[in-house]
């Protein structure tokens, strides 16, 4: 994998940091990475955007790809969205399908008690 996305494993959850890689087609490797986590037995994936300045249309396309790819295999939630990114996710309809948390800790806490949105 040319771009190894940063991640943090905690219990049955894993936090993946999208950073700005998500805005390039190379970011598609995040799809395989999330799929691999679920295959390994993780139940939840928190995609954290606190290091992402602005998600572009490529990023949106990749995120939709991730959601489609892990459909039925586990759950995915978002955290750390800057306002501008929240607005973009809202425009393209992602917020209607994915739970969004202020930060990764909140997302993990919720993850412990709730399965988020099962996809």
């Amino acid at each position: 994998m040319a771009v190894r996305h940063k991640h943090r494993e905690t219990g049955t959850s894993v936090v993946v940091y999208a950073d700005n890689y998500i805005n390039d087609i190379e970011g598609e490797k995040l799809e395989e990475m999330c799929d691999a986590f679920l295959e390994k037995g993780f139940k939840k994936i928190v995609i954290d955007f606190s290091g992402t300045d602005l998600v572009n249309s490529i990023g949106v396309s990749i995120l939709i790809g991730i959601i489609e790819k892990i459909k039925g295999k586990g759950a995915v939630v978002f955290s750390g969205l800057k306002d501008v990114n929240f607005q973009i996710f809202h425009i393209v309809g992602l917020t209607r399908h994915i739970r969004v948390y202020d930060n990764e800790e909140d997302a993990l806490k919720e993850s412990a008690s709730c399965d988020g949105v099962s996809l």
């Binding site: 249309s57 990023g59 949106v60 939709i64 393209v92």
Partner: peptide, 13 residues
């Protein structure tokens, strides 16, 4: 990349 941009713009899967 262009295809991804188009798909992202219209949130097509």
């Amino acid at each position: 990349s262009s295809l991804y941009m188009v798909m992202g713009t219209f949130s097509a899967s």
